[in-house]
Nucleic acid binder design. Structure first.
Lengths: 187, 187, 187, 187
DNA sequence: CATGAATGAGGGTTCATTCAT
DNA sequence: CATGAATGAACCCTCATTCAT
């Protein structure tokens, strides 16, 4: 049985994500993707209207995942030391993202550089992500509005910033110490 | 005296930086740069061996500048409330970087994606930058080694992360509140 | 009774004519036509063997219509001043054809360029058209054979030529003055 | 000695004109032109910015030629029977244009269909052509303004219309009789 | 009857790079 | 030193056509 239409779209998306993760957006051609899937370029265009279309779907999928992950972290932290856990699990995530982090950076660069509609989409997800975080912080820790706001911006920034450093492989990032430091000062 | 070799190289570098800041690396062609400088592509190749060569020099120049700026921030903070000042002046920098921030992101993306030797160079600068920060923190605030380390990673991350958000123009970043929050919790 | 085969062919033809009128032959894809009709490309191929096939049928239909129109003009002119009326009604037609004129030009270009069998078909209709015109001229005005011949060629040319100018929208065509001029010199 | 830059542009233009005359605009690819000249597609783009650019230059060149030709006809007719001569020489031109006529039709179709700036250019040349004709008619034959206007429109139309018929090769066009007819009725 | 899926050849265009002059 | 000219590979995209279901 051949893969259904939906399956084919999924297959293409997976292959595209993999290639882009490895080589970046500009260094991944539609020919590469088609070859990886084992179809012709024409077929690619049957399923997606353009390269931008593919990138947008990757962005959607990627940003939904990280929004979900963050939300998950925060919501599962209803124990005695919730902040500890949040910080630890976020840092755990970062230290394990290699692949996801790369796509993340590529999408951001693409959004900044070239693709108006992609920027719109990423923007929305980003705001969604941060707002979710802020609301949960406020609800869980009874912080005032301004503090929650500041903290949410900081957490998002720290994630992005650590992703950058981890991708550059500058040096081994001391996630343990960072976690300890954050817990000591924020909890 | 004719405009020296060095001058021409500088002129090219400035024009290239400007164009890349505006349009990104992949969207800036050597033809664009040559036209902006008012020379031919051939002449460009006389001064620089390749596009990558130009990008590497831009990266060098850019990273030297920001390393210097950060060092400056930290060293001039020998007053009564040094941490306050550091944090404030770093955030001031971020909120005003527009152009610098863009090149920064483009260079990082390029380094991650394609350019092995660029990655090496950026790596070195990043480590330099962070180590400087850490040493100053340790010296100035008498923090222990692990804390200084963690804090330096965090500060660098926050800078990069806020740059990302500011470039995406997701929402107005509340630099004031963020500064207050950081000062309250770290000082 | 289900919509008959003939009906579907008609529907397709109408949609295709509309699209080609608006965008030209090369700029109208079979996908466009299929979408306009609300069927799949596969179905299109069930009804017509090829794109050329569709174009030929459009040409047939279009040329039948204008031949009929011209014939009508000439035959209804059995009054006191027949030539006046013919000229006026032909120019009226031209000044109102916008759409028809476009298809006309597109078909002619296509015929000249690429489509051997289309050229044959258009050729036949053109000869039919001109001969009809000539015979009517001869019969109605008792002109000699050579004059009728020349005049029929001229009339056909003037139609095509004015269509060209009207489509190029070069300037407002003074149909009134042209009619007057023709009437003064030919009647 | 290699052909100079100007020569190369001319060479390209000639080859392009030839191919387009034979096969039409849409059926002439840049690859075809490059191959005909014996250069790479890249080189083509070194000399011309786009396919449209090439077409526009062909249009310029073509329309300048026919405007000049018509002007020439009219101006050289300062003898006893000027109208006779004008009509005869115009018809002579038409009966001999085969190649020129094809480009003419292709350019017009292209202008109508697709190319805004090409349409502008052709428009201007067309108006130039007709106005020139009108002025000469008025000056030479002392016709009133409205008549000159009408006649100029008619002459241009007849040219375009006869070109169409001659390209369709419908039947042998009786240029002699047409000339006679026109002379009898207009002179 | 009708379709969704696939194709492959070809389209125009871009660009880093080379090199004779 | 400087350049204009040339290149060729790669890029994204279009589309008439085919065919199993």
């Amino acid at each position: 049985m051949k893969p259904s239409n939906t399956n084919m779209k999924q297959t293409i998306l997976l292959a595209a994500t993999k290639l882009i993760t490895e080589n970046g957006i500009k260094n991944t051609s539609l020919a590469d993707i088609a070859k990886a899937v084992g179809i012709s370029k024409g077929t690619l265009y049957y399923h997606y209207a353009s390269k931008d279309d593919i990138i947008c779907e990757i962005a959607d999928s990627h940003l939904k995942i990280i929004t979900g992950a963050v939300l998950n972290c925060v919501q599962n932290a209803n124990t005695e030391h919730p902040k500890d856990e949040i910080i630890k699990s976020i840092l755990d995530k970062i230290s394990a993202i290699e692949g996801t982090g790369r796509v993340h950076m590529y999408l951001i660069c693409e959004a900044i550089t070239a693709n108006e509609s992609l920027r719109e989409r990423i923007k929305i997800h980003y705001m969604d992500w941060r707002t979710t975080l802020k609301d949960e912080i406020k609800k869980t820790f009874h912080d005032d509005d301004e503090s929650s706001d500041a903290l949410s911006f900081l957490l998002v920034s720290i994630v992005d910033g650590l992703v950058v450093q981890s991708l550059l492989k500058t040096e081994k990032i001391p996630f343990e110490e960072i976690a300890t430091f954050l817990i000591n000062h924020w909890c």
